[in-house]
Design a protein around this nucleic acid. Structure first.
Length: 490
DNA sequence: TAATATT
């Protein structure tokens, strides 16, 4: 049967309907009908959809309530991964209302633990300004208890106690009122005014996090979960923008390696997450001023005429700059403190090192798009010092693994030492050696190193996942170490 | 004390 695609939905030929008000919602052109929707149609959010169901699978379930104008399963922008939810617009408003009352929380799709969600999408003027987060509830308080507590302030549209997998309350809840004013009234009367049995402090009633706040919260959680980078974390402490950023990268890499057997797509996901985190920063929440100490509009550490080269003495967050190498004052400091300055130019309005880090990344992306270009373009030349370094160090105390197991890693962060390099590649297999090359005179990292695995497939997995992996303004270059006899430059 | 997800 011939079909025509409209709004991404397959429409059958010659189909034409009217809604309950008698309005046409199909425009017939020749044999095809282009669907029209009511001007007051409602876009529905559909949640708790099994991830193996696509539009064509969902259509029959929803067509029962009227003609569908548009049905879109949400996919991840970068990976195409099914997000487990969808948007649905019926041609007729009434169809949406019928579907909502018939389906919302009324049935559970196969393989799901919770009932399907069918409700107006957030985009339908139903923002989150009416939704409260309620903390410090007693663990035994149910949805009903919470409702009773809040119903005096207005119409409650939703009330959910957060629970773990075992059904035990997490001691907090979301309560959505029908208006912002009602929610505000509840805050005024309830926040901090009483302590629930078993709670460690008084009741918390506040507006729920926005998306951006939620993203930030997650970033913090992730950063906190990784007790990695022991020396750097300690050293950088409150100035931890860089090390936090690295942690995030590590987290992403770890996820790539451990949560999915397909390393390549997971690396894409990890990269996508970082991009999203960076992107959300510029969009108004953070507004970290990159006050350059030089007084120019150029990011610190880079002079106005220089192309941002890999050798640029530039911290990942755009704040730190290394001291000039020509100062002739090598130090004996450990590498992770060497040349890294705290950030005296921090804006007093910026308190979050993560925000700084991601803002810095984004500023760089904007100022120097070349750094975000494909690797081959971003890094047109390779330093020629590598063969020297190999001669100098490699055979002495860097025993390589078997052929095909040794990786060359370039564009490491300045602060990375052997331990950090090792940590970064452990997820891909047994690392038998990890060596960052260090300048003997200055004791500074040369920003490249070698990693050896005990088998070639680990090495390949690491290349797949980590080559091109973005850390701050740089992308890692990860490739098999050149055999000794190969003498061509990069 | 922050969820299963909102183009």
């Amino acid at each position: 049967m011939a079909t025509v695609t409209v709004n991404g939905v397959l429409q059958e030929n010659g189909f034409s309907t009217t809604n309950s008000a008698g309005r046409m919602n199909g425009l017939t052109i020749g044999q095809n009908t282009i669907p029209m929707k009511d001007h007051d149609a409602i876009k529905l959010f559909i949640g708790q959809i099994p991830r193996n169901l696509e539009e064509k699978d969902l259509k029959p379930l929803f067509e029962e309530f009227g003609k569908i104008y548009e049905l879109t399963v949400l996919k991840d922008r970068f990976t195409g991964m099914h997000k487990g939810c969808a948007f649905l617009t019926y041609c007729a408003r009434e169809s949406a209302l019928k579907a909502q009352s018939a389906l919302h929380e009324q049935k559970t799709l196969p393989g799901m633990n919770r009932p399907i969600q069918v409700k107006p999408a957030d985009s339908e003027g139903r923002g989150e300004d009416r939704k409260l987060f309620v903390g410090m509830l007693g663990k035994q308080q149910s949805e009903e208890d919470v409702r009773r507590l809040f119903e005096t302030f207005g119409q409650i549209e939703e009330c959910t106690v957060l629970r773990g997998p075992d059904g035990a309350s997490k001691g907090c809840a979301f309560v959505k009122f029908s208006s912002h004013a009602e929610a505000q009234a509840a805050i005024n009367s309830l926040h901090g005014r009483q302590t629930m049995p078993g709670a460690s402090s008084s009741l918390v009633v506040k507006f729920a996090d926005t998306d951006k706040e939620r993203t930030l919260r997650r970033m913090h959680q992730m950063a906190g979960q990784l007790g990695i980078f022991s020396p750097m974390t300690i050293q950088f402490g409150a100035y931890g923008a860089y090390s936090h950023a690295q942690m995030m990268q590590q987290q992403a890499a770890l996820m790539a390696a451990t949560q999915n057997s397909y390393l390549n797509p997971m690396a894409a996901i990890a990269a996508a997450q970082m991009q999203q985190m960076a992107a959300f920063n510029v969009n108004g929440l953070v507004a970290a001023p990159m006050t350059p100490s030089s007084g120019t509009s150029t990011p610190p550490g880079i002079n106005a005429t220089a192309v941002p080269s890999l050798a640029a003495p530039m911290g990942v967050n755009g704040f730190a700059s290394l001291p000039p190498q020509t100062n002739g004052q090598p130090t004996n400091e450990p590498i992770y403190t060497n040349g890294i300055h705290p950030y005296p130019a921090q804006s007093p309005t910026v308190t979050d090192p993560l925000q700084q880090a991601y803002a810095g990344v984004q500023h760089y992306a904007a100022a120097y798009p070349a750094a975000y270009a494909p690797i081959s373009q971003a890094f047109p030349q390779q330093p020629t010092i590598i063969p020297q370094q190999q001669r100098e160090v490699c055979c002495c105390y860097f025993p390589p693994g078997p052929e095909g197991c040794n990786l060359f890693i370039y564009h490491l962060p300045q602060e990375f030492g052997d331990a950090e390099l090792m940590q970064m590649f452990l997820p891909f297999g047994n690392v038998i050696s990890a060596k960052v090359f260090v300048d003997r005179a200055t004791n500074q990292s040369k920003c490249f190193g070698f990693v050896s695995f005990d088998n070639p497939s680990s090495a390949q997995a690491a290349i797949q996942a980590m080559n091109g992996f973005q850390i701050g303004m740089k992308r890692l270059k990860v490739q098999l170490k050149r055999p000794k006899d190969a003498n061509r430059p990069y």
